[in-house]
Each structure stands twice: as structure tokens, then as C-alpha cells.
């Protein structure tokens, strides 16, 4: 089982109702949204309708929304050495 990773790169504004309906059906609400759909002929047909607007890749595993968000998160630039600052303060008392 593989999946299509579909990203809306061009907006559907001003396109015919059928195209906008396909975008809605696939769950592409605004530009740069990414959805994962199973590889089936029906999904392929839907992608054919919006092929000028999207970026499509075949992937093995779909990512959840949380995973996509985590992948986008920049490196904070630090790491926490030790938690529990309260205990440490008590040490110096």
C-alpha cells in the first residue's frame, strides 16, 4: 500500500466549480496544504483534474498532521540539560 502525497501549490481561485469541488473533496483547503491519499484509480482521476495546481509524490507511509508540523519546526538552537530547576535551587539552601 502506497500513498500519494498531494500538496496544493497553485490556488484554485477562479477555477471551474468541478476543479474547486475536487480540491475540497481531497481536503486541499488552501495553498501549501499537504494531504495523503491512497493510490487508487479514483484518487488518480481526481489528481488528473487538478494536475496543474498540485505537486504529487508517491510515498510509502502517510504522515500525520502532528508529524508534518514537527518536521516544519526549526531547530531551537539549545537543548535542555536537566529539568527540575526547583530541586537544584533547594540544593543551595
Amino acid at each position: 500500500m502506497t500513498w500519494f502525497r498531494i500538496t496544493l501549490t497553485r490556488s484554485g481561485i477562479g477555477m471551474p466549480a468541478k476543479v474547486q469541488g475536487v480540491l475540497k473533496a481531497l481536503g486541499l483547503r488552501k495553498r501549501m496544504t499537504t494531504v495523503y491519499q491512497p493510490v487508487t484509480p479514483s484518487v488518480a482521476g481526481q489528481i488528473m483534474r487538478i494536475k496543474e495546481l498540485v505537486d504529487v509524490k508517491e510515498v510509502d507511509q502517510p504522515l500525520t498532521k502532528e508529524q508534518i508540523r514537527a518536521a516544519r519546526k526549526p531547530d531551537p538552537g539549545y537543548y535542555v540539560e536537566r529539568r527540575n530547576a526547583g530541586n537544584r535551587a533547594r540544593m543551595y539552601e
Binding site: 482521476g45 489528481i47 488528473m48 504529487v56 508517491e58
Partner: peptide, 18 residues
């Protein structure tokens, strides 16, 4: 994109008329 669709469907042994 058309090539991607075609390759993905072919891997599952399927075709699509469009």
C-alpha cells in the same frame, strides 16, 4: 505528475482510463 500517477498505479497493477 502524469508519470508519477502512471508509475504508482502500475506498481499496484492498475490502470486508469484518463
Amino acid at each position: 505528475i502524469v508519470a508519477t500517477l502512471d508509475a504508482a498505479l502500475a506498481r499496484h497493477g492498475q490502470t486508469m482510463r484518463k
